[in-house]
Write a protein that binds this DNA or RNA. Structure first.
Lengths: 336, 336
DNA sequence: GACAGCCCGGCAAACGTTTGCCAAACTGGT
DNA sequence: ACCAGTTTGGCAAACGTTTGCCGGGCTGTC
């Protein structure tokens, strides 16, 4: 019968306030939006009092429709289960909030078709910007880029061309790892990586190998192995297995992500190899948990906590009509 | 001058399609929404073809305004940096997507005033439901509950009264930990916890202690310590420090979360205590990384991956007008 | 007193969609 | 030929907000 009664506080609208204040909704709207000089001081005061008393809050849907700005930003991230991705998400979310935006989070599971589905869905949500973490090449992405949508790429550059970017200098990160191991006097070095690595992975490995060559280590002296796999954990385990197939463990091992390092570590445990005494493992990311439960891991710390502010800065630049730009943040090798 | 030209593909609207098809926007709307029986087969076919060709996608803002449903759900979570929270977020996001909703993610940093700010902001976004992970008591929360907003509490029950809930039987989880340690013949047992723990933490500790009492261990034989702290990592470290202050390490230690266990582990490392030989540590959550880098940790696995579906189920029940209900999922003690 | 300029505020048209209602055209039965 | 019923589709009013434009009343100047 009167099922509406059950929980139907009807929302307070501009009209509600306007009626109570004896002014038009236009006036209330202007006052709510801080437009001064369009109403007398007394009117403003009175309306504001009523707004407060009634707890009026503008309906964002109506506003978005009229102003054509939703104040929503979409963040597409592969597997949130990866702590590095979670850290980026947290950082971006916080930065967006302080800039007055809210974040829709989409987990693409690193799959192009899901990324496309989300890009379409977000477009019909009328989001104002996109943050693409480790994006993959896909049709809707190309279309979005071509349309000139405001996109910031994080971690991995636009797989199809230019675009705003926030990340680190991956090549230098690899080189820093090389320098460290070299300085420790370790010469039997190895590196593992995903078989179809992203540009980020490739650059890290590349920087590592190049630097070692500069230091005088012949290319063929650096053992390499790769593996396919769903997660970097499994890739690390499987690639390490291939690496040591019949052979001894290297004295130093670069893993292009902490997750891969964990995978390699598990194999080492199973084989009775002592880490870090027998083999120094270097990861990249420096997961916050390392300090607590993986002090054996040397890792390149990426300042994920600072990503959010940079990302929002890039978005605002795009909104202001500026050209896309790249922002490289400093990294730091952490040894415990 | 013509700056609009630069990147202004004007969006394709119902009107665009309607004009091209020579029908009214009403007809297009109905066809897009799958309403059959209101247009001839040929018209439907023709319109659908044009919709496909033009790539028309309904604008969700317009639709939300008219239908009064945004298909947006807000998820409020404390620190995403906690892998357990990230796992919940990922699971809920996936479940929402397959139900046709999108998720706005809000990181409350476990602070009541931020939670309030978000609750207000989400209300003006006209979200259709709320997923509150480990919610804290707050003013806007009470108001929202009183208004009858559709809220599902996860992990921690509504701090102010009843409400839909998804989680595990925390008391039994604590008891299971007690059973395990007891069965190992360990009798010098201890437990640490946050000084102002949530109901979840309290229940876990409570279940642990009660079960031990049932098994014949006098209450005062169970050492307890607590600490204040920002993160459970720090709480674990500090509480463990108090626990062993001058005294020996216990043979078994319950930590109400894996994070706290990591904190205790770090102290053990520093003190040269061998884990698990000297002290069995039991955590709760069973972080996915445990299998890889913390095999020493015994942990109660919580099926976070299943939370999403349950949460969405609860939301749909609330939308259908059903009463709030509680959903307890099975947990399992994992020993490696 | 005419006129310009300002202050204060309202009217009404958007924004893109959905949907209740009406109506024209057709069908088939008498 | 008429009528009832069905099929097909359009009109226009919402939904809640913002904002261009207009106008009435006031002040001050010539």
């Amino acid at each position: 019968m009167n099922r509406k009664r059950v929980s139907a506080h009807q929302p307070v609208l501009l009209a509600t306030v306007a009626a109570k204040a004896g002014v038009s909704i236009a006036t209330v709207s202007r006052i709510v939006n801080g437009e001064t000089g369009r109403a007398s001081a007394e009117t403003i005061e009175r309306v504001q009092k009523i707004v407060g008393a009634l707890g009026y809050r503008p309906n964002h849907v109506g506003r978005a429709l009229r102003r054509r700005e939703s104040r929503i930003v979409a963040m597409l991230s592969p597997n949130l289960d990866n702590p590095a991705m979670a850290a980026i998400a947290a950082s971006v979310e916080t930065a967006l909030r302080s800039a007055g935006y809210v974040m829709i989070l989409c987990d693409t599971h690193d799959r192009a078709e899901l990324q496309d589905e989300y890009l379409h869905a977000m477009r019909s949500q009328a989001v104002q910007g996109y943050v693409l973490v480790n994006a993959v090449q896909s049709e809707a992405l190309s279309a979005s880029v071509a349309r000139g949508d405001p996109i910031v790429f994080v971690g991995r550059r636009n797989p199809a061309g230019a675009g705003s970017f926030v990340g680190i200098d991956n090549r230098r990160a690899g080189a820093d790892a090389a320098d460290h191991l070299w300085a420790q006097g370790i010469r039997d070095l190895a590196v593992i990586h995903p078989t179809q690595g992203s540009s980020a992975s490739r650059d890290r490995v590349d920087g590592f190998v190049r630097r070692l060559k500069e230091l005088g280590l012949p290319c063929e002296a650096i053992r390499q192995a790769s593996a396919l796999g769903l997660s970097h954990l499994e890739v690390g385990y499987a690639a390490a297995q291939r690496l040591i197939d019949g052979k001894s463990w290297p004295g130093g091992l670069l893993c292009p992500s902490d997750m891969m390092a964990y995978g390699a570590y598990r194999l080492a445990l199973e084989k009775g190899i002592r880490i870090p005494e027998t083999c120094r493992i270097v990861g990249i990311d420096d997961n916050a948990l390392n300090a607590w439960i993986a002090p054996w891991l040397i890792s390149v710390r990426i300042p994920y906590a600072d990503f959010g502010a940079k990302v929002v800065g890039q978005l605002q630049a795009l909104w202001a009509g500026e050209q896309p730009s790249e922002q490289l943040l400093p990294h730091e090798l952490i040894v415990r």
